[in-house]
Design a protein around this nucleic acid. Structure first.
Lengths: 129, 129
DNA sequence: ATTTAATGTAACCGTATAGTTACGCATTAT
DNA sequence: ATAATGCGTAACTATACGGTTACATTAAAT
């Protein structure tokens, strides 16, 4: 069976774009800001030290990741948080939560020491042949 | 009080490097792989379609983010998962969990409609003066 | 009808990423 | 001693990113 490709849950369709969108601190800050309520683009931009076009591009990426929704309101472009895609991220992390939830970390260390011993044994074995 | 800079929890020291490390799907897949047990670098690399040096560089980033630990074992470099930094990511997402946990999303929509109405009122107001 | 306000986009720049091949250095095997 | 393994690093390339300034567009204000 040779573990060809593991479960590789890291590469779920949307997840990819989402993780990438979250990689930038400014973008995360924008989301944090939007958590307190929707705002027009300019107002968002004014909360950051970078230029407005820079924020505009960040918003484009956030849109592409469906982390925000936009709707026109007069000459304003109001941005609204859409936390839905974060569920995918959450569910990915979920798989790791058990590692820090209990003493599994120690257990893991033990299991690995075990593996190391096995490897060592295998090595000695090959030496003999 | 004018919400000068929000809480901006997006920019916590280590969090930055962690999010960045998770941005790449291959790196996340490496972590997924390591969840099943520690492995030497070469074995990790053999699980992916890219070259070994490519994985080596990914491992360097994961090391920098303290998401993996490395220890030499003979001529092998065994990599071990260290989920600890993921807690920071988890706690960031935590703040968003409430949004999909209940009907708060709808409530949010309502509040925003409210805001919109306020804005509209303010606009009409300014028009008068 | 003009002007002003609110945004997005284009063009450009510097730097980081992800990947490749070639090479160097230990450590184990022969 | 020499060969082979296992890895990391260097050098190089192509592409994406984040930022800036200049320009285009649409809607509101005068």
């Amino acid at each position: 069976m040779r573990e060809r490709s593991v479960t590789h849950s890291a590469a779920t369709p949307g997840r990819e774009i989402t993780f990438q969108a979250l990689a930038d601190p400014t973008r995360r800050a924008v989301l944090d800001l939007l958590r307190r309520g929707s705002q027009p683009a300019g107002q968002i931009a004014s909360a950051f030290p970078v230029s407005r076009p820079a924020i505009s591009k960040h918003l484009r990426l956030l849109r592409r990741a469906h982390l925000v929704r936009e709707h026109r309101e007069g000459r304003h472009r109001v941005y609204q948080l859409n936390p839905e895609p974060l569920r995918a991220v959450d569910s990915w992390i979920e798989q790791y939560r058990v590692f820090w939830a209990s003493s599994l970390n120690n257990l893991k260390a033990f299991v690995e020491a075990e593996h190391a011993r096995e490897r060592e044994a295998a090595r000695k074995q090959r030496k003999k042949s």
